[in-house]
Nucleic acid binder design. Structure first.
Lengths: 346, 346
DNA sequence: ATGAAAGCGCTAACAG
DNA sequence: CTGTTAGCGCTTTCAT
């Protein structure tokens, strides 16, 4: 048997240009360009001739040259963090990348714990058409504002205190309160909270909503039932839960813990159990975000689901709108949440 | 209090070019370019003058124009899959993106279940300088070969049957065998296996290594103790384990199960338990890959760790080498594994 | 050591 | 409808 491509020409050595295609098709280079843009100003026969040459020759337009003219790269920067720590982020990344691809945009990932000045510069100067960030915090607001000055920027999931930036987030104040109400209405009284320091708005609002709604029900959270983790991971969550349970032994046994996100909640589950308590009989645990693992039966975590898909879809749509009309008024949209009742509370 | 930037000039409206910088610095545009390239052919004083103007003006070179000249975009495509299903992939992505960034390269993500002809075209034509894929399978070998013809390509984690492509993988044959040996030497006799159909080489080798090593110990795996999942996820793993346990009830109770990756292993853990068996007392379960969750105490999975960081580092280094010398002979390197003993086996 | 000039491959305005 | 032409902003000879 002859080699599979014995009858076809070997691949061309030098990369073809639209000029080559034009020559082969017997038309001008501009016509090739028009065909590429699907311009209606090309006669069907001419178009076909050009397309045939393109198909046969394996010609592909040069992206850099095109970008140079159009001033568009069709690349959107995706700023994420904690990819290997908090499964929420890969889940978001997956949705974002799919939503962009659907619109013919490609995604460049920027994963960085501390998203600072220099990374920001490198990112913007890499020539992206827009930025979607899932990791904005107030401390970095100046950076985001500067980015927004140069390219369309949309914040998803995490928000900042600015009405000059498009933001899509979950109703974190509401979901925090909902968890509190659920605890209060079901007879939980000695309530713990696992949260952090210098929180992103997202988590701060969950905490605020939770605490103030508890107050409305006449429940005050004991200072010693609040653990502030230095970072959000399985390990810090476990430690925090142990601390809360331990403190409870001296005062009042904690009977429910709200964790501001799922990754610490999973840790808390194990932390509580490692102290000889059972979940949910002794203590209820509720998380936030509904990461995929929350549904695993070894975890089976009661948690709050954000409208993740809707949030991403809205954000990407917004980005595209702003790509088309950069002067658009910024908007901040808050999406609904839903408590997912599983086995760790009630 | 005046607005923070009242004393500084407003940001320039039109984007600056190197020509503008040249004018402002009183030099030629070529000199600006030389400064940008860190060319030694610029007098220190001139260089300083140019750099000052750049710093003050906030000039940033146009990436598209630069790419057009240099024929380099400094963008590497990262082909991944299952970002939201198998935590191995975000872990790989995180390492890859960090390794690239360290070398001044940026990463574009291509997440797709079925990586086909068209996606491949779009990807290559988007102008990436190279491709790193974690999801190659033999079925798509032709695509990969075509990609490799056009840009440097490196395969990590998953491999294909070709010696024309750079590949970095774990010693999957060896690790499969090691698990078998561990089972055999510890008195396990009725051994189950959770694997799939049309496996990527990675998984196929784990399976082959496992089965043949068991044979060497005089143990044959009963057909009914092998479950082949349609896809690899928590849910399919759980179903598969239940099936194996159920089949065992009619013949011989299974006392150990090897799962070709961790995500099905976690499912298997819950599947086994849902059948009223305990792990590891009744049945041992071992996974593969050491995903972050494997260490959580609610899971505590005995598994095989790949040399993930080393693999990624080597792969990225290789890609860079090939970026510099495209004609390099392809190499295929196999990295060592290590069994991580936790609580689900022994 | 610096400047002038050519040109990367494409799009878009203009002319016909 | 199609061709000619003029750049986009940069890197890189080639002069000087």
């Amino acid at each position: 048997m002859p080699p599979p491509n014995s009858s076809t020409a070997p691949p061309p050595r030098r990369k073809l240009t639209s000029r080559d295609v034009a020559r082969l098709a017997g038309v001008s280079q501009a016509t090739v360009s028009r065909v590429l843009q699907d311009s209606p100003l090309v006669q069907p026969a001419t178009r076909k001739a050009v397309l045939d040459v393109i198909a046969q020759s394996g010609y592909a337009p040069n992206a850099a040259a095109r970008s140079m003219r159009t001033r568009r790269t069709n690349i959107i920067a995706l700023v994420v963090a904690n990819l290997a720590v908090n499964p929420l982020y890969p889940a978001m990344l997956q949705l974002l990348s799919a939503a962009l691809r659907k619109r013919g945009l490609s995604a460049s990932v920027w994963e960085e714990e501390d998203f600072g000045e220099d990374t920001m510069r490198v990112m913007v100067e890499s020539g992206v058409d827009g930025v979607i960030a899932t990791t904005a915090v107030n401390a970095t607001l100046p950076f985001w504002l500067r980015i927004a000055e140069r390219v369309p920027l949309v914040l998803v999931h995490r928000t900042v205190a600015s009405d000059a930036i498009d933001q899509f987030s979950s109703d974190n104040l509401g979901s925090g309160a909902a968890v509190a109400r659920y605890f209060a209405e079901n007879g939980r009284r000695n309530i713990g909270l696992i949260t952090g320091h210098n929180l992103p708005n997202t988590l701060g609002e969950r905490e605020a909503g939770f605490v103030s709604e508890l107050g409305r029900h006449g429940i005050e959270v004991d200072e010693r039932a609040i653990a502030r983790v230095p970072s959000f991971s399985y390990g810090t969550g476990a430690d925090a839960a142990r601390e809360i349970v331990m403190n409870g032994e001296k005062t009042a046994e904690v009977d429910a813990i709200f964790c501001v996100n799922d990754i610490v909640a999973v840790g808390a589950l194990d932390g509580v159990r490692s102290m000889g308590r059972t979940v949910p009989d002794d203590v209820w645990v509720v998380g936030h975000d509904d990461i995929p693992m929350a549904g695993w039966s070894c975890i089976n975590l009661t948690t709050v689901a954000q409208s993740r898909a809707a949030m991403v879809e809205a954000a990407v749509a917004r980005l595209c709108a702003r790509l088309a009309s950069p002067a658009l008024q910024a908007e901040s949209v808050v999406l609904p949440y839903q408590i997912v009742h599983r086995g760790t509370a009630g």
